[in-house]
Simulated assay, not measured.
Amino acid sequence: MTKLSDLGPLIPGKLHGGDLIREDGHFYNCPNCGQRVDQRDLRQVFWHEEPGHEPLEPEAEAKVIQFPRRK
């Protein structure tokens, strides 16, 4: 399983236009694997855009957040 740190150093993303958003507004669920993606870290965004990818392995210092799946 790939770790976020395996993808290299942080590639920060920026919000362009619009108003500031709440903290939870920076995240979305990947439609392919269901993992939460922090849009402020472009490594995560690029990883989750790749067809057939696996979820990233969580790391203690990484910003990948595991949420329980909704039933």
Rank of each mutant, 00 (worst) to 15 (best):
Q44C: 05
D41V: 05
Q44D: 07
H48N: 10
R36L: 12
W47N: 05
Q66V: 14
V45K: 10
D41Y: 03
D38Y: 10
K71G: 15
D24V: 07
N29H: 14
L42W: 01
R40M: 13
K14W: 09
E57D: 06
L15G: 01
Q44V: 05
L42H: 06
L10T: 00
E61F: 11
E23T: 06
E59I: 04
L7Q: 05
R69Y: 08
N32D: 14
F67W: 08
R36T: 07
L42K: 06
Y28G: 00
Q39M: 14
V37A: 09
E61N: 14
Y28L: 08
D41W: 02
D38F: 13
D41C: 11
G34V: 05
R22V: 11
T2I: 06
R69A: 14
A60E: 15
L4H: 07
P51Q: 04
P55K: 02
P55H: 04
K63I: 00
E23F: 11
H26I: 04
A60F: 07
D6M: 04
H53A: 03
N32Q: 15
K3G: 00
W47C: 02
Q66N: 09
V37D: 01
D38G: 00
V45G: 08
P9M: 08
G13S: 10
E50K: 15
K63M: 02
Y28W: 05
E50G: 00
I11A: 06
G17V: 03
L15Q: 15
N32H: 12
R40G: 05
L42M: 15
T2Y: 05
Q66E: 15
H16C: 04
Q35G: 04
M1V: 12
N32I: 12
C30M: 07
L20C: 06
G25I: 09
P9K: 10
C33V: 04
K14D: 11
P12V: 02
K71Q: 13
Q35D: 04
L15P: 00
E23I: 01
L20E: 14
Q66P: 00
R43T: 07
P58Q: 07
F67A: 13
F27H: 13
G8Q: 09
E59D: 04
E59N: 01
P12W: 00
D38V: 03
D6N: 06
H53F: 07
K14S: 11
R43N: 13
P31D: 09
R22K: 15
R70C: 09
L20T: 11
G18V: 03
K3Q: 12
E61M: 12
W47Y: 10
L10D: 05
D38I: 00
A60S: 13
F27Y: 15
L15D: 01
E50N: 01
R70I: 10
V37P: 01
G34E: 07
F46Q: 12
E23P: 04
D41F: 01
M1P: 12
G25W: 07
L15N: 02
